[in-house]
C-alpha cells in the first residue's frame, strides 16, 4: 500500500541511498582540520577596530581550547588586554582558485586569557611546543606572553557555502 515515490528514480538508479551526511562526523572533521593546520588567523578587537594576526597554534585533544604565544609589545597583546572576545580562522587552502569546493575552514569563537607562569604555564606551553618545537625560546622569553583560548563555538564551512556549528564539551 505504500505510495511509489513520485518522480523519484533513486530506487531504480545506481545512485546510492542518500546518506544523511556525506561529510561524516563534524567533530572529527574539525579535529582533522585543526590537527592538519598548525597556524590560524587570530581576530582581536578594541575601540570598534578589528585586527587580524597569523599565529602558531596548539590545541587540546577535545578541541575545547587553543594556545598561542605573542610578544607583549605587539598590537594584538594590547588588544587582548582590552577585550578578551576573540575569533580564530583555520582553513585548508593551498591557494589555487580551482580548489574552491574542496576548501574547509573553521571560524572559532572564544575567550582569550593570559596564562601566568607556574605549572599551568608549563602544561600549556608543552601543548604549543609539541607542534612547534622550534618556538621553545620564543614561548619562554621574558617578553612573551602565553594565551589560551577557551572555545565557545565552531563554525565549520565546506563546499563553499555549507555551514554547521559545533559547541565542544570538555572530556573528563
Amino acid at each position: 500500500m505504500s505510495q511509489p515515490d513520485p518522480a523519484d528514480l533513486q530506487a531504480a538508479t545506481a545512485v546510492g541511498d542518500a546518506q544523511e551526511h556525506g561529510q561524516g562526523d563534524l567533530s572529527e572533521q574539525i579535529g582533522r582540520l585543526v590537527r592538519d593546520r598548525p597556524y590560524g588567523v587570530l581576530c582581536t578587537q578594541s575601540q570598534s577596530q578589528p585586527y587580524g594576526s597569523l599565529v602558531a597554534l596548539g590545541s587540546t585533544d577535545d578541541l575545547t581550547a587553543f594556545v598561542f604565544a605573542t610578544p607583549t609589545a605587539t598590537r594584538k597583546y594590547r588588544l587582548l588586554s582590552e577585550c578578551d572576545h576573540v575569533a580564530l580562522v583555520i582553513d585548508s587552502r593551498s591557494g589555487t582558485p580551482s580548489e574552491l569546493m574542496d576548501v574547509e575552514a573553521v571560524t572559532v569563537t572564544g575567550r582569550a586569557r593570559q596564562i601566568p607562569s607556574g605549572p599551568d604555564f608549563d602544561r600549556w606551553a608543552e601543548l604549543l611546543l609539541r607542534r612547534h618545537p622550534h618556538l621553545a625560546s620564543f614561548v619562554r622569553a621574558e617578553s612573551s606572553a602565553l594565551f589560551r583560548i577557551d572555545v565557545i563555538r565552531y563554525f565549520h564551512v565546506c563546499r563553499f557555502q555549507e555551514v554547521r556549528q559545533w559547541v565542544p564539551s570538555p572530556t573528563t
Binding site: A7, D8, L9, Q10, T13, V15, G16, A18, Q19, G22, Q23, P97, S98, L100, M101, D102, R159, F160
Partner: peptide, 22 residues
C-alpha cells in the same frame, strides 16, 4: 570550464546526488 564543472559536482557528495540532480 573545469572550475565550473568542479563547482557543479562539488555541491554535495556525488553518492548523495539523485539521478535527477546528476
Amino acid at each position: 570550464l573545469e572550475d565550473r564543472i568542479r563547482m557543479e559536482l562539488g555541491r554535495k557528495p556525488f553518492d548523495d546526488m539523485r539521478w535527477e540532480e546528476v
